[in-house]
Simulated scan of single mutants.
Amino acid sequence: MNTPTRIAAFALGLAAVFGGAVGVGATVGPVGPSDPPAPAHDAGGQTGAGHGDGDGGHATRIGPAEAPGGLQVTQDGYTLALADAVAPAGAATPVAFEVLGPDGSPVTAYATDHDVDLHLVAVRRDLSGYQHVHPELGPDGVWRADLALEPGSWRLFADFAPGADGANRILGADLAVAGSYEPRPLPAPAAVAEVDGYTVVLSGELTPGEESDLTLSVSRDGAPVTDLQPYLGAYGHLVALRDGDLAYLHVHPAEADDGTSAAPGPHVRFTTTAPSAGTYRLFLDFKHGDVVRTAEFTVHTDASEEHGP
């Protein structure tokens, strides 16, 4: 075993020993009630970082004054509580968690958003292994899902809106997966991604502190794909994670310029705002041929481009 691997394995062993403390440090914020609840959805979308309007036609817009999602384990009294902070590696590792409400009880009533009550995103802290799944809620208030987990430190994001107020929240918690590993280097920035024979081209600039338009164009064997299938009520789902702290943005396609519903490809347009300069990893989920695929991009934004306060 080489030195970096031994160091990583030792660090992960410490994470396992102190697993109960994982995710409750400064990067995720204090545990317990905090700010007042955010406003509920209005007819045009929502506030904060999360899903767009339920019909899939509006983009989520995240202003520079709003904190990114996923950095806290607790928000507005809601807490993401993992059943275990340590998990074994495996292709289908069971993971269980609760969303605890302000009264400390598991939340069992949710506002359905894009056909589901809760989105779970999992990614290793080196931004590899991305997964977007939809766990099942048991009558006991426990969410359960199987994840493909390699050794390392993982971040789990729960994206949901409690039925009590309908306000979207994104909570994050750390999960340590036992075993020896070396973090993977982040892929270099590129505007083209290949996945399962599909080519996805990213155009537009992600400008920190300023609303940005991003267009992702899907083709296969050189031919534009014009029959993308709806996936959770939209033709594409985009998650952006900031390298380092894994601040989370989740957006959905914008309407066409004339206000009509977006076409089913080849172009899927998004509107969002990066909260700061830095390096981001973008993950586009799209459905075609009854299969959901994920195209991945690395995007770098320079501090000199920042226009926010």
Rank of each mutant, 00 (worst) to 15 (best):
M1Q: 08
N2R: 14
I7R: 07
F10P: 05
L14T: 06
V17K: 13
G20D: 15
S34D: 15
P37I: 10
A38L: 14
P39D: 08
D42L: 13
A43H: 11
G54K: 11
G54V: 10
G56C: 04
I62R: 12
I62M: 14
G63N: 12
G70N: 03
L71H: 08
Q72S: 12
L80H: 02
V86A: 08
P88E: 00
A91Y: 09
V99C: 04
L100Q: 03
P102N: 06
G104K: 07
P106C: 05
H119T: 09
V121G: 01
R125W: 09
L127W: 07
L127G: 01
P135S: 08
D140C: 05
W143V: 02
S153K: 12
S153I: 06
P162R: 01
A173R: 14
R184I: 10
L186W: 03
P189K: 11
A191Q: 09
V195R: 04
G204Q: 06
E210R: 15
E210H: 13
A223C: 13
A223S: 15
A223I: 15
L228M: 04
P230S: 02
A234T: 15
Y235T: 03
L241N: 05
R242Q: 07
D245V: 06
L249E: 03
L249A: 05
V251F: 05
H252D: 07
H252S: 07
A254L: 04
T260S: 14
A262T: 13
P264A: 00
G265P: 01
H267P: 06
G278Y: 11
G278K: 01
T279S: 04
R281C: 00
F283C: 01
H288L: 05
G289F: 05
R293K: 12
E296Q: 15
T298K: 07
E305N: 08
H307P: 07
H307F: 08
